[in-house]
Design a protein around this nucleic acid. Structure first.
Lengths: 207, 207, 207, 207
DNA sequence: CATGAATGAGGTTTCATTCAT
DNA sequence: TATGAATGAAACCTCATTCAT
């Protein structure tokens, strides 16, 4: 990504600012309908200034999508952070719950990324697509740990992890449909039980 | 949707043709990047001719999305058509298998519709969003029938039906990820078993 | 003016029809905003048929303007027709009154012609501009006759005739302003007296 | 009228420039036949620049017509400015003479405005139509003053004022015809005397 | 002779990007 | 470093005219 400025620190600061503000414009108007003057205004910068820190409109898109990814990753880290000391069932429950609540918070930017991802250059796109890996990895570890402890019994751990990830994505993508039939918490409960029923050796009874 | 021609039959034919050909252009380039001359060329028509049958570029988008919907609906009808005489478990298996194979065939237009839907006028959008209803309805009937026959035991039939729909959509949306870990048939098997495990009163053993 | 048809009589009939119907469209929408399909519809003909009797859109404009001229000329002939036996003062009064009432009837097409005249080819335009000559000539004769009879005394007969013509045109062009301050008949009275006061040797007293 | 620039002064300057230059193009080609690249070239600007100061082609038309109005208003103020100290007859003579000479100078833009006025939005059109009010008002004051001083005797002052206005408009609208029979000065003399003969109590004899 | 579908040049307008200040 | 006016390519759309049926 080209920048005319030489002050690396300033570049980083400004790019973060642009990502933050441009997100709102993109989410509201869509990538193509949003124009640079609009974005500049939202950033409180001039058009010319934007272009000192960014080489093109597509670069801004990349910043925005990455900004979303970073937020999501932070949520994911948090979701898995406190699960180590828990019973495997509780760990899965907690992680799924945290995760789905998190993606619900940033659902707008996630939706936007889904729609718009295909516009950015394939090499950059890879970063976006790999975001879920952290989630899937996290669950794989939880699941494996649960298997070792004899709580879970799973043929294809990776597939189950993928499915959990998919469940969280789906809340975002199909929110308009699910909202008609259940609340966020009901969605979480239903799907958590769903997964647990699938992987638990025997029904779990919390003490 | 405005048309300058008065020959209703011709309008229908040409619009179908435009939908067919414009689909390819939109899928390849995206809605905004595709321009009218490109579309005209793909249709083997002149720009002016396009506008005899269509009032705007957005109208073409509407035609394309609707064309996809119609194809999907045809597949859905076919998927449920031969399930009536089957054992509930076989019926669910067959319908899920047919459905996922179908959406795989038209995954490009489905993906495009997901991305681009938000651009069309809300009143038209409703048609798109309601497409899944047919699928969900179909499975609800299968599931209910299975419950009545004492084969299935389900708390929330609608939620399960939604989940099956989600599973089929997911193959499309995350195909790039699933392909790395399984084939289409493996995906179908995994998820079919997954659902059956969830809803069957007792393990099914085909005779 | 080119025509593909060879049947001279049909050409004349159709052109008259086109002039009649296209007038309404032009008056309502203006020349540029009116399009050929609209005109064809108003004529109850197909686009192709129009072009058998007319070489271009400009030709239609010419027909329309000429149509207006012919109507005006007929009115003018009528206005002067019954003035021969009258006293010069009555003759001028009658002719002015008839004339202004006439142009009021066809004010829309006159306004349109004024606006649009400049679009037609100069050679054709001449016909339009010369229309007033008949009016001016008519009044010149009346005025001269009045002078000979010792009723009028006029330095510049042509100028007075022009002025009378102008007065009639002005009712059309500035109708929106005059309507606020007087009726058509008051306008006629005011201006007739105005002219008579200017040209009469001594105040006229009808017997 | 939309503008993208925020520098109010620049907007004013540029719009004046556009009005000035676009006038020439519109007068020469007519509103519809003139295209934006032509206008831009005449302004020494790029097409994009034009649209920083103007929202549409119709806006340019509005600027051009308004530009003409302003010039006319300036002339009108000047025409009445030095008449206060004059004898009523001289005042009317002077004002009429100045006015007709003025409209002769800007006859092209006046003609264009008359033709094209109907294209602009009615609310904006009102401004154009009200321009004559200043002229009519000016003459009404002169005439009333002359009546009070016992020099004029007039039944309907407003109508006479309208007629004087009409006389000045006529030189513009029918210049092509009048030029064949008289010079501008002869036209002024003829019509001035004409009006004076109509309104003076007794023939005026300058000392 | 009548039709109206097809054509494609040309219209207005937008907007990412540059660069003089 | 910051600004925002200027650029002009390229977008969508219209419509006078033609010509196969």
């Amino acid at each position: 990504m080209r920048a005319y400025s030489k002050d690396e620190k300033l570049i980083t600061t400004r790019r973060a600012h642009i990502a933050e503000c441009a997100s709102k414009v993109f989410i509201k108007k869509g990538y193509d309908a949003a124009n640079i003057p609009d974005i500049a205004k939202a950033c409180g910068m001039s058009v010319g200034s934007i272009y000192r820190y960014v080489g093109s409109k597509e670069d801004i898109l990349y910043l925005v999508i990455n900004h979303g990814i970073q937020r999501e990753k932070a949520f994911v880290r948090k979701a898995f952070h406190d699960t180590r000391s828990l019973h495997p069932v509780e760990a899965v429950k907690s992680a799924m719950s945290e995760l789905i609540k998190s993606v619900d918070e940033i659902r707008d930017i996630i939706m936007f990324s889904y729609r718009t991802m295909y516009l950015i250059h394939p090499s950059a796109r890879k970063d976006v697509l790999n975001t879920d890996k952290a989630i899937i990895n996290g669950f794989e570890k939880l699941l494996m740990s649960g298997c070792k402890k004899g709580v879970f019994e799973i043929d294809n751990i990776h597939m189950v992890a993928q499915t959990i990830d998919v469940i969280s994505q789906m809340w975002v993508i199909r929110r308009w449909a699910f909202r008609k039939i259940c609340t966020l918490n009901e969605y979480i409960d239903f799907n958590t039980n769903y997964i647990l029923k699938l992987i638990c050796k025997e029904p779990y009874k919390p003490t």
